[in-house]
């Protein structure tokens, strides 16, 4: 069984309730069309499960097949340094066809970022190192394509279409009433 290493933690980009009963981690690529579809699915999960879900996104850019993926991940991480990670993340997935540098700077403007800082951070060592670290943690955890999801640290092998995934998580939440907290 492939297990998430490191586990979901406070260094992750987190969305939702830190004390939620379910921890969901996605390894994804901003240029991957499947991840583009999964983005809308995840938003629906977040809406539907509310306080019961904590979601984290980690970078898994497939740079050889998606030449803009790594750069887009840099934009998200650079925006994160100005507190706008999720705004940028959303813009990237909602505009997957447009990931040239010009587009990334346009999104930075929409996020009201300091563009000088953004430009500097984009290529900075901490940003690129974090993306590489995310990628390797994914490879070590058994990510075998994008998107790959981990539910409470275990690789999720089922369908990630909304009805199936939501039903699976809902069952788990109901089951977790009988278990120790996560």
């Amino acid at each position: 069984m492939s297990r998430l290493r490191p586990p979901l933690n406070s260094q992750d980009h987190l969305l939702g309730n830190p004390d939620a009963r379910i921890g969901l981690v996605e390894y994804g690529d901003y240029q991957c069309p499947h991840c583009g579809r999964a983005y809308y699915m995840v938003n629906s999960l977040v809406d539907a499960l509310g306080e019961d879900l904590l979601f984290a996104f980690r970078n898994f850019p497939m740079s050889q097949v998606h030449p803009h993926a790594f750069r887009a991940a840099q934009a998200a991480e650079a925006a994160g340094l100005q507190g706008s990670y999720w705004k940028m993340h959303n813009l990237l997935f909602e505009n997957q066809q447009f990931l040239e540098d010009e587009d990334l700077f346009h999104y930075a403007e929409l996020c009201r970022l300091d563009l000088g800082d953004f430009a500097r951070d984009l290529d900075s060592e901490p940003v690129t190192a974090r993306i590489r670290a995310d990628f390797l943690s994914g490879a070590r955890s058994g990510v075998n394509g994008t998107p790959t999801f981990f539910v409470d640290g275990e690789r999720y092998e089922g369908s990630w279409e909304l009805p199936g995934f939501l039903a699976y998580l809902t069952d788990r939440i109901q089951g977790s009433d009988l278990r120790e907290p996560r």
Binding site: M62, S63, Q64, V65, F135, L136, A139, V143, N144, G145
Partner: peptide, 13 residues
């Protein structure tokens, strides 16, 4: 294809 694409990305490691 997915498997070989993955190994291609992990190759540097």
């Amino acid at each position: 294809s997915d498997q070989m694409a993955l190994y291609n990305e992990v190759l540097p490691e």
